[in-house]
Amino acid sequence: MPRVVPPIEGRASDVDISPSLVESIAGFTAGVVATLAVHPFDVLKTRLQLNQATRLEFGSSWRILRSIVQNEGNYRGLYRGLMPNMIGNSTSWGLYFFWYVSTSDLKDAFRKYRGGDRKLSSAEYFAASGTSGVLTAICTNPIWVIKTRMLSSGRDAPGAYRGVLHGTVQIMRNEGILGFYRGLIPSLFGVSHGAIQFVAYEQLKNHRRAQKPGAHLSNWDFLTLSALSKMLAGSVTYPYQVVRSRLQTYEATQHYRSASDLVFQIWRKEGVRGFYKGLAPNIIRVLPSTCVTFLVYENTKFYLPQFYAANF
C-alpha cells in the first residue's frame, strides 16, 4: 500500500498551476486506478442487476463469475468492457472534482453569495454536489450505455459490441443520438446518490476536524469518512442503478415502454428484492473503489503541485 501523506489544504494555490487543473487531474487519475482495481466486481454487479429471476439463489455470484471465466475467454472475461468503464469513471471523477472541489467551484459561489467564509449548510452542500452530478451525468451517459451493454454479455455473444468505437457506431446507426441517452432519467435521479454521499462526507469531515482542532486530517481520516458516506448513499439510492442498467441493455425498448413501466414490472415480478439485486457485490466493489479513489486523489493533489514547481 502506498505511503499515506497528510493532504495540505490550499497547497494547489502555492504554485503557478491552475487549482482546477490539479483537481481534474487528481480526479481523473483516481478514476483510472480505482476502475482497474475493482472492474470484475462491476461486471458481476451488472450481470446480477440484469437477472430477472424472481429471486437469486445462494452462491449466484460465484456461479456467474465461474461461468464468465469458463465461457468468455478465461479471466479476460472479467475485464470485458474495461475501456468504457475506465473512460466513464475517470471522466466522471475528473469532471466532478473539477466542478465540486476546485477553488472556482459552486461551493465558493455559495460562500460569495452568502458573504464571508461561513460554513455551508447541508442544503448548500446538497445543491452544489447535486448540480455537479447533473452536469457530470449528462456528459458521461453515452459511455455508460456502451459500458452497460458490453458488461452484460460476452464478446462472442450475438450482437455484442467489440469495443467502444464499434458500440458508438452501432448505436448511432440503429438508434440515433437518443440511443446514447437511454437511462438518463434514472441517472439524474441517481444524482441524489452523489449528493447524499458528499453531504454526509462534508458533515463527517467537519465533525472530525472539530475533534482535531488545528490539525490537518490524514488520508486515513479521509478514507474512513468517504467509506462511511459511500455506504450510506449506496444503501439509500441503489434501486436507480438497477433501473438504469435494464434501460440501457441492447433490447430494452422491446421489453419496457418507459422507466415507470420498468419499475412496475420489477415490483410485480420480483418484489422489493428486485430493486436490490447486485447490492452485495456493489458494496464490495464501491468500498475499495472509494478508498482507492480518495487515496489516489489526495496523493495526486499533494504531489502534482510539487512536481510542477520542481520541473516547470
Rank of each mutant, 00 (worst) to 15 (best):
residue 279 L to H: 11
residue 33 V to L: 10
residue 172 M to L: 15
residue 207 H to Q: 08
residue 299 N to H: 09
residue 174 N to R: 13
residue 129 S to M: 11
residue 167 G to A: 00
residue 87 I to H: 01
residue 78 L to I: 02
residue 36 L to T: 06
residue 218 S to R: 13
residue 272 V to C: 14
residue 85 N to V: 04
residue 38 V to P: 05
residue 115 G to D: 11
residue 283 I to H: 13
residue 266 I to W: 08
residue 10 G to C: 11
residue 127 A to P: 05
residue 88 G to F: 11
residue 303 Y to T: 04
residue 293 T to K: 00
residue 305 P to L: 05
residue 29 T to P: 00
residue 124 E to L: 03
residue 124 E to T: 02
residue 16 D to V: 11
residue 276 Y to A: 08
residue 256 Y to V: 05
residue 97 F to M: 06
residue 102 S to E: 02
residue 64 I to W: 07
residue 73 G to K: 01
residue 305 P to S: 07
residue 131 T to P: 02
residue 108 D to W: 04
residue 168 T to N: 02
residue 42 D to V: 08
residue 43 V to K: 04
residue 59 G to Q: 03
residue 66 R to W: 07
residue 118 R to I: 04
residue 126 F to T: 00
residue 245 S to R: 04
residue 202 E to T: 08
residue 17 I to K: 10
residue 99 W to N: 09
residue 35 T to P: 00
residue 234 G to A: 12
residue 60 S to N: 05
residue 212 K to Q: 14
residue 141 N to K: 10
residue 284 I to E: 04
residue 192 S to Q: 07
residue 271 G to C: 06
residue 210 A to K: 13
residue 151 L to Q: 15
residue 26 A to H: 08
residue 269 K to T: 15
residue 97 F to E: 14
residue 33 V to Y: 02
residue 113 Y to I: 14
residue 16 D to E: 11
residue 180 F to C: 06
residue 243 V to L: 15
residue 239 P to I: 01
residue 186 P to S: 09
residue 142 P to A: 10
residue 121 S to Q: 09
residue 257 R to N: 15
residue 305 P to F: 03
residue 211 Q to N: 07
residue 5 V to S: 10
residue 190 G to C: 10
residue 254 Q to I: 03
residue 181 Y to G: 11
residue 117 D to A: 14
residue 284 I to M: 13
residue 157 A to H: 11
residue 47 R to K: 12
residue 261 D to Q: 06
residue 17 I to N: 03
residue 85 N to H: 06
residue 252 A to P: 06
residue 155 R to Q: 06
residue 57 E to D: 10
residue 269 K to E: 15
residue 308 Y to N: 06
residue 295 L to M: 12
residue 288 P to I: 10
residue 253 T to F: 09
residue 149 R to L: 01
residue 83 M to C: 00
residue 25 I to T: 07
residue 97 F to K: 08
residue 67 S to T: 04
residue 281 P to K: 02
residue 90 S to N: 05
residue 195 A to M: 12
residue 148 T to N: 13
